[in-house]
Structure formats: structure tokens, C-alpha cells
Design a protein around this nucleic acid. Structure first.
Lengths: 329, 329
DNA sequence: GCCATCACGGCTACCGGTTGCACTGCGAGC
DNA sequence: GCTCGCAGTGCAACCGGTAGCCGTGATGGC
């Protein structure tokens, strides 16, 4: 107990000469209080610096105003902007974000979700590493929105990288490339299969060849390593799983004397600020992470109000063509 | 079909045939309850899946178990590991982190701190953009730990980059460099003056020259721009303010035909995963961010227990010498 | 002119813990 | 044998809001 005696609703009520409940109503159900009374109460509350206690409200309503956000890591530049966007969107709804980081461990993610789920109103889980059944179970107990992961009809916000990499393929094939390589991500990656399918589709339509390298871990070093395979594959263009992969590819190809883009065009399936300043600047998919964050919070807010969350939201990435991709030869 | 009706303390008490208060004590003040009773209560609570409500506890104790963490941005790779470390350390103390991002705006940071301070037990503010008086005021109202920022004797965790850049200077001067350049950060940067002072000290001791370029914004583009000045300064080694600056320098020097490290050695005053894979790999200071996060939480926990927080903790960075620095000529 | 209606706002019981205080036995000290 | 003390536990008052129920006075319809 410190000296930080904040003004309580009872204090305001006393000064205003009304009952506590009237003060409460003046804020929560304004129509139930006569306009002059309401205004007086609000003015007095304001003058006294009254801030309703979230904790007390939480206890009586059962809602804490907190949203849990679980991400696998903050090292991957994918998640920084997402977290920032979620936090901003939450703020606009007068909610706060409790952040948890699974450090890329499914087991840890499970633990974190278990703990969080009893202490927040709703949960946003990005790029979950947990199995479908677990997520389904969680969703039954607490409003849950998935980002970058689809599980049946569970509310989710997806970024349509398959169509994004297809756009890259169109761009490359349109420029005259006939042999493309896709460097795939980690073995368990939920995102890879649809991308590869989309790429195969495009390749078949246009009679181009598609080589799939990997799977490899999403690290720079793995990218460097795989660049050897890529260099020998006789392709004229490479699409990398994510920014780390591509950084590795750039480095690895460079040390092998393969010039980008003269010998091989390189594109990345996700964005990274530095790619606009590297040499050459890299063609990337700009992922709509800000939009994704906002959409996730919006969807969760709807769930919390008891409304239908709506169908999974699918956001399209934007192809940013830079120096690293050009016609072959 | 069981509802999400969580078991309350009263439920446990009823089943155990004791009073609510005894159940409470069995957990909070075990010594006040006879061992057999205590064990029985705990067993029953366990079997019933009792989870004490944080909210209710918060209401009656005035402590929420939440810690606020304010960072300027998540784009800078400095903050990801810091946030992760803080979250982990908090978890070990059974506390949770409410994250807020100021987006590099002092005004927004002020707002966020104001809001948070009434809703969390304590606050960790990293690389604050706010003025000293404001932080002092906040610290009077709520336990506050600063990271990477010193304000009088306020509890803080500092990373001693001045001695780090001094170590870089020693390394360079020891290798034979006689004209060094430091590219300074943004004009208001709290970190620059002591670094420059440390560098000047080393330069004077050894009779080397120090050129200070900048100040410039901490972006890749600004680094590219300033590289022109650096190239003309006739120096054989450059130390960059942070990773973005150095990436810009590498790029900029490259396009001007200045070879690294043959013509100019380059080192970075902060770390960045990619620097171990760039070509050349860059000599950096590894900043002990994990340690900093843990130290900050530890210090805050001490404050919350009413103990003296102790003097500001100063952590030393580690010099990682890589390919980008070598003897001149 | 009387009663039904309704807007307004007070009273009070929650929500689920924590904690000060009172009560009950039992063992020790004299 | 009678206090006194203390360990062990129950009772009830909080913490600061929210919301259901009810009383009151004014209004309007007949």
C-alpha cells in the first residue's frame, strides 16, 4: 500500500452527491442518467482526475481488456511490424497487449497459450507451431484469432503468399526465364506446400521448369549453404522462402562468382527493410503486416462482442520489383 | 459440456470443509495453516483444477502482476532480443509483460507511459525518448527501470558502449590505424557524447586522429549518404553508430570503389545477426541484451518488493573481431 | 381527479480473492 | 488448578467497480 491513493468511483459519488451506481451508469450507460446529472458527474470526475480501475471492472464484468499475442520470435523481421500493428489496433479499442514469445518451440507455445488463456479476453496467435487439435480446443474455450495459419474454419487472417510467389513467377516468366528455383523453408512449414503448388501451376501453364531446393531452416547460413545447389541447378532465377534465406543466397552466390542479377535473378517471398538498400536491391513481396494486425484485432473484437467473426481474411502481398530480377542472359 | 466456469476459492473451501480464508492462507501464507490441513487443501484444489484469479487478487492486493515494457520500435534489431529477454525473465517471476511501442515518438511515449502507469505494477522503459524531468516524475509514482538511458540515480541498466567503442579503437589503433572516423547517430542521441569522449581519449593517448562525421539519422540511407564524406576524409577506419549506419556505409563505400577492409576498415557499435554473414563479415560489438533484459526485470522486482534497487547496472559489450577490420595499407 | 407508466437514481448484492480480528482449545508455567 | 499464550481457523470487511431490483415523483390518459 503506497501513498498513491487514486480517486475511486465512491469518491466521485460523494462529491457529486449521488450513488456510486449512478456514477458508474453515467459512464457505461449514459442514456440511463439524466443529461444534467450525467454532465455534472463527468465534470466532477474529470476535475478529480478519476480513472476507473480496470481491475475492479474486470472482476465484476469478467473481462480484463487484455489481449494475448503469441509470436514465435522477434528475430524474424516478419513479426516486428505485426506486433506493432496489433498493439496499435488494440490501443484504439482501449485494450492492451500481453506479449508472449514462443522462441520457435511448439511445446513452449502450448504452455504460453495455456497460461494466457485464463488471463486475457482473447488471443491472437501468429504462425502457430501447435497442432490443429490443440488450437481447436483452445478456440472452444476462448476467442482466438490465428494469423498466418489456417485451421478449418477457425477465425484467421492469412497472407496469400502462394498468389504472391505466383506473381513473382509471372514476373520472371514474363521476363523470359524458363528455369526457376524455389528454395523452400523448414520441413514442417505450413506455408510451403501451397506456394510450391502455385509455382508448379504457373510453370506448367507456361512450359517453364521448376526446381525445388530444400527444405532448409530459415537462416542465413542455410541460405548460404543451399546456394551451392542452386548454382549448380542451371536455373536463371531463384525465389527464396524468406528474407534470411535470400540474404544467404545473395552471399553464397556472390562467393561462388555467380552474379545477381546478370547470371541469376533473385527474389524474396518476404520483405525486409534492408532489401531496398542492398546491392542489388532485391525484388520482394511486401507483406501487408499492418493490415493483418488490424484485421486480427478487428476480428477478435467482433468475436468478443459475440458477433460472427466472418470468414478468414485473406490479404494479398504486393510485388515490389527491384534490381535483382531482370530478363535472363 | 462443462462450461468455462472456473473453480473459485469458495468452491475449494466448500469441498475441503474449511473457510475461504484458510484456502487463501494455504497458498499465500503456508506457515499459518497446519501441515495436514494445508496439504489436504492443496490436493483438493489441485484435483478441482483451481486457478486463483489474478484479477481478484489484483483488486484486493493492488498488484496486478503486470509489468509494462515500452520500446521505441521493433524494427531496430536492438529491441527484439531485449523484449524477448524481458518477457522470459518476467515469466520466471510469474509476471506478464504489457508491451507498448512508441514508434520513435517522444510524445507518443509520454502518452503510453501515462496510460500504462496506472495499470501495471512497474515499468521498464528502453531507450526512452522522453525528457529527464518527466521520467523523474514517473519514477516517483511507480517503480521504474530504465534501460539504455541514465537519469540521475534512477534505477537503470546500461550498456557501456563507450568502453565498447573504445575497445574497437584499441583494436584498430593496435592494428596500426592512425586516422579513425566515428559516424555519429541522430542529433538528440543520448549515447553519442560519451562514445565520442571515449574515442577522443583513446586517440589522444595514442597520438591518432579522430574525425567525427554526422550527426545523421540511424538509417541505411543516411549511412549511404555519409559514406561519401567518409571516403573523402582520408581515414583508414570507420566506426558506425549502429547497424543501419554500417549497412549504409558498406553499401555506399562499395559503390564508390572503396574496398572494405583493404582500403578502409569498418566496425559497428551494435550487433546485427547478418553481420556475421555479410561479405566481409563485420567487426561488431555484441550487446548483452539478454543480460540487460534479465537485469532490468530483476531490478524492478527488487523495487516492487520494496528493496533498494541497487546502483545502475552497467553491462559491457563484447568485441567480435571479424573480416572487416585489419591493419591499414 | 385517479391510477398506470416511466424516467431517474438509490440500495445492495455480487465478482474472487486477502487480511485484520475474534474465537477456540491445548500445553506450559506457577 | 488457573492463567496466559499461541497455534489454528472462522468470520466478515474490504478492494472498486457493475447491474438487478425497487422506490419515488412526475406525467399523461381516461
Amino acid at each position: 500500500m503506497r501513498q498513491q491513493k487514486s480517486v475511486s468511483m465512491a469518491d466521485v459519488a460523494r462529491v457529486a452527491g449521488v450513488a456510486k451506481s449512478t456514477v458508474s451508469r453515467a459512464f457505461i450507460h449514459p442514456t440511463l442518467v439524466a443529461a444534467p446529472t450525467r454532465e455534472r458527474i463527468r465534470r466532477i470526475a474529470d476535475e478529480m482526475g478519476f480513472r476507473p480501475s480496470r481491475v475492479a471492472r474486470a472482476l465484476s464484468t469478467g473481462r480484463t481488456g487484455l489481449l494475448g499475442l503469441v509470436v514465435p520470435t522477434l528475430s524474424n523481421p516478419f513479426f516486428g511490424p505485426l506486433v506493432a500493428a496489433v498493439q496499435q489496433a488494440a490501443e484504439e479499442e482501449d485494450r492492451q497487449i500481453v506479449l508472449m514469445i514462443s522462441e520457435l518451440s511448439a511445446e513452449r507455445e502450448t504452455r504460453l497459450i495455456e497460461r494466457l488463456s485464463s488471463e486475457v479476453d482473447g488471443l491472437i496467435v501468429a504462425t502457430s507451431l501447435c497442432g490443429d487439435p490443440f488450437l481447436r480446443k483452445v478456440a472452444k474455450r476462448i476467442p482466438l484469432v490465428l494469423v498466418d495459419r489456417r485451421v478449418g474454419r477457425l477465425p484467421s487472417v492469412l497472407i496469400d503468399t502462394p498468389s504472391g510467389v505466383a506473381a513473382i513467377a509471372d514476373h520472371l516468366i514474363g521476363a523470359g526465364h524458363r528455369r526457376l528455383c524455389y528454395v523452400s523453408g523448414p520441413p514442417g512449414s505450413w506455408a510451403d506446400a501451397p506456394r510450391i503448388a502455385a509455382l508448379r501451376g504457373r510453370a506448367e501453364e507456361s512450359g517453364a521448369d521448376l526446381v525445388v531446393a530444400g527444405p532448409i531452416p530459415p537462416t542465413v547460413d542455410a541460405g548460404i549453404e543451399v546456394s551451392e545447389t542452386v548454382a549448380k541447378a542451371g536455373v536463371t532465377a531463384v525465389i527464396g522462402y524468406n528474407s534470411a534465406t535470400v540474404l544467404g543466397l545473395l552471399h553464397g552466390l556472390g562467393t561462388q562468382g555467380v552474379r545477381v542479377p546478370e547470371d541469376v535473378s533473385v527474389a524474396s517471398a518476404d520483405d525486409f527493410i534492408l532489401f531496398q538498400s542492398t546491392k542489388p536491391a532485391v525484388t520482394v513481396l511486401r507483406l501487408p503486416l499492418e493490415e493483418a494486425g488490424h484485421a486480427a484485432v478487428g476480428m477478435l473484437a467482433r468475436l468478443l462482442r459475440g458477433e460472427r467473426p466472418g470468414k478468414p481474411v485473406v490479404l494479398g502481398p504486393e510485388l515490389l520489383i527491384r534490381e535483382s530480377t531482370r530478363p535472363p542472359g
